[in-house]
Design a protein around this nucleic acid. Structure first.
Lengths: 239, 239
DNA sequence: GATAATAAAATTGTTAACAATATTTTATCA
DNA sequence: TGATAAAATATTGTTAACAATTTTATTATC
């Protein structure tokens, strides 16, 4: 009981925990492109030594979520327009391959599980819980990759998912219209159930293109307060 | 003049240099799956401090080239059969997408440059310089990705290229027949020149499947002497 | 000679201290 | 008041020392 009441900022995080927390903060739009990530501040926030933070930042930089400049520290990455376009184009390739692979091996239970996920996503939208809906929306794509059963495709999709918010926030800003639309998810699941590869891929492409086609603008957004945004949350086990 | 004659084992390497050297050693088959990478030894070999080696190993582990186990150090990764199959299947997806993109934007000079590369590759094979031929063969694939102009696809292909030797060495062993065949490269360039996407992709798939279909066996190979294999080479600028 | 126990050596993991660099604040001057 | 220079502070980069763990070598026992 006592251990469960430990405040997050007093907990002792592992390297992977810290990495996950920062990745999640990017995904949630809590950390926006250009935000400065100061080592000492992060170490204090997470209750760890600076060395651990340096390791995490190295890994994040290697994954291109973070830009590291010698003697100037780390900032959340700001992808260029070209990089954004390339990322979305590649996402279309990867998601299509996932759908092909999934449909070639999908079972009844897979379709049912996807249906349940969509129910939850729809309910979250209806009650106005946009944060939860966004998370479920992202999970939908992850689940497709997991069900497809190709670990390398899954790995790349997860990489893309982590980087997608950077593109959106850098070039499009936070806007309801720059997110997944639930009915398109439904159409994809329907096509999977019918084993209709062509339709599934077509809808997925449209799904992604509706965001991608807008990557031209460059609205600027002021940096937010890092401590507030990145306040550690309890480490949760994946469902 | 004096600086140019510095012996490699006395040079001061940057973090990126060391990373590149180790990656290259994997690509050359000098470092084989299961090989133990000891920090102090590497630090001595490269003339750097142990801290830098730890950073490099972190990055290599994040890229799955290296397995890191707490308190037991780092070894060159040994992908499972499934992982090997997934990697090759994903490679087919990525290479096909690269060909599509390239053909949609290819110019005369691209085709000429690829032709010159193939000449060099063929000559290396004919004079029995297998190491050089292998390097040129790998460069061929990299060049396709570079010409296609999608940086994310290129990044993923480079990741795949770095990991491919691990699969081959783990499951197939060093064998002339587990490498690219020059005539298939020629057929691919020919199809690109004719803007024949279908044929280009078909040949590329065959090209990769001729290796992939063999990923079932597990020949074992004894670990080699690390210091000999990983002796630093001079840092070369990419051509 | 084989096995187990112990000791020694090697390796990995962590840390605080300090150096180097960048940023912010303060003082000075026109 | 604004611009510039100097001083102070903050941040990043590096390092050696030490702790913790694993591996290897040596010794003891049967």
């Amino acid at each position: 009981m006592a251990t469960q009441n430990i405040k997050p900022d007093q907990a002792r995080f592992s390297e992977d925990d810290v990495l996950r927390q920062i990745e999640q903060a990017v995904l949630d739009h809590r950390l926006t492109p250009g935000t400065k990530l100061k080592e000492v501040q992060l170490a204090t926030l997470f209750g760890v030594k600076r060395g651990l933070i340096r390791k995490v930042l190295t890994r994040l930089a290697h994954s291109r979520l973070v830009d590291q400049t010698p003697n100037r520290g780390a900032t959340v990455a700001k992808p260029s327009v070209k990089e954004g376009q390339d990322l979305f184009a590649t996402r279309r390739v990867i998601e299509s391959a996932i759908l092909e692979t999934l449909i070639s091996r999908a079972e009844e239970q897979h379709v049912e599980q996807l249906g349940r996920m969509l129910d939850r996503e729809q309910k979250a939208y209806l009650r106005g819980d946009t944060e939860r809906a966004l998370a479920l929306s992202v999970d939908f794509h992850r689940q497709l990759a997991s069900m497809a059963g190709n670990s390398v495709l899954e790995e790349y999709l997860n990489d893309i998912i982590r980087r997608t918010p950077l593109v959106i926030l850098t070039h499009l800003g936070v806007d309801e219209h720059n997110r997944c639309r639930n009915q398109e998810h439904e159409a994809i699941v329907d096509a999977i159930a019918r084993r209709d590869v062509k339709t599934a891929k077509k809808v997925m492409n449209q799904h992604l293109l509706h965001i991608e086609s807008k990557i031209k603008h460059k609205p600027e957004k002021p940096p937010a307060d890092l401590a507030e945004l990145l306040r550690p949350r309890s480490v949760e086990q994946p469902s």
